[in-house]
Nucleic acid binder design. Structure first.
Length: 304
RNA sequence: GGUGCCAUAGCUCAGUUGGUAGAGCAACGGACUGAAAAUCCGUGUGUCCCAGGUUCGAAUCCCGGUGGUACCA
């Protein structure tokens, strides 16, 4: 049996509730893989329903939620580091670790054991690169080859970061942190497109009723910049645009709805990509009763 | 009831003097190892309202319907 259980799925597939039940059954703890739920104060918009982590009156321990202030920049590198810290802690207490979330990149970085060096910001280099065009930056980047892995470099910001990393690696050849790949059974929650769209739309109405606009307003009042909120995307982006008067309520609703639908599609593209890259995902239909999902999952877990 | 205008992709619309049609958005597919809910790339999916006519050839011109719309009664 593999030590780690991964639960993934697109937004609105019910993965959190399922993972909480699974944890409750296996005396497990949940390690979140959600790039936005790490932020404190971003609750309604991220669907951070902490009541989900309570099954039959008993709390299910969870990790990597509410670990940063809104407005902070939390990265893949931070996540990988935090995951391993928490993961070894859970194992040391003889608990079952359940990795659960919708951020495919975070999940894959852990499962594959991405090797990321700890590269600090190089302000001098950034200043020098800033005035250059994307074409020039791409040329500079190619002079650093061979690069084993790097982000896409479609924008100047990413190209500069890629150069920064490449430059650091050239000066510090043995700088990669060695996180080994983690073996895991992967359970995926499958929700057909039509149900997914319906759930997303009704959930959006519910979130607005629950005070999502006020939540964004309060983040702004606390000094989180509109640009940062917009960068966080989806709910935070469109509600910020609404609150700052850039769009009206109707536009906010319909554009946000569309953006969430597209986001769910991108998540599925990532998960399909993971399968192409060699991961086996055991898909369970979201509409099955919880108990049935648990039983099916347990079979896959025992066989792993 | 009369007259004008409109009817083309899921939506909003373009389409020249007649040569079987194309934009935006949506949708769909994909990439993606450092803010990934981000960022980026690709794909046109059509009874041109219906039925006749003119023509070698009709989304386009003519006639008759149907539906919508505006004004006049």
């Amino acid at each position: 049996m593999k030590k780690l259980i991964t639960v993934l799925g697109p937004t609105a597939s019910g993965k959190t509730t399922f993972a909480a039940h699974l944890a409750s059954r296996l005396d497990g703890e949940i390690i979140s893989a959600d790039s936005r739920q790490v932020y404190r104060g971003m609750d309604i918009g991220t669907g951070k329903d902490l009541a989900d982590y309570r099954i039959g009156g008993n709390p299910v321990p969870y990790h990597l939620i509410d670990i940063r202030d809104a407005g902070d920049k939390y990265t893949l590198f931070n996540y990988q580091h935090d995951f391993h810290k928490v993961y070894s802690d859970v194992l040391s207490r003889n608990k079952t670790a359940i990795l659960c979330g919708g951020t495919g990149l975070y999940i894959e970085s852990v499962l594959k054991g991405y090797r990321l060096p700890d590269v600090p910001e190089n302000t001098v280099l950034r200043k020098r690169l800033e005035p250059k065009s994307l074409d020039e930056l791409t040329r500079i980047l190619s002079s650093y080859k061979p690069l084993h892995n790097t982000t896409d470099t479609d924008t100047k910001k990413r190209a500069i970061r890629a150069i920064e990393i490449a430059d650091f690696q050239r000066k510090h050849p043995a700088s990669e942190l060695d996180y080994p790949p983690v073996e895991s059974v992967i359970i995926g929650l499958d929700i057909d497109r039509e149900s997914r769209r319906q759930k997303i739309s009704s959930r959006l109405k519910k979130r607005l009723d629950e005070g999502m606009v006020a939540e964004v307003q309060s983040l702004l009042n606390k000094g989180v910049s509109p640009d940062d909120l917009i960068y966080y995307g989806l709910e935070y982006k469109f509600v910020t645009l609404y609150v700052t008067g850039k769009i009206n309520f109707g536009e906010m609703f319909s554009e946000l709805e569309i953006a969430i639908h597209r986001f769910a599609k991108r998540q599925m593209t990532w998960f399909r990509g993971m399968e192409r890259r060699g991961f086996t995902i055991h898909w369970l239909d979201f509409s099955l009763p919880v108990d049935e999902k648990i039983e099916k999952a347990l079979v896959h877990i025992r066989n792993s």
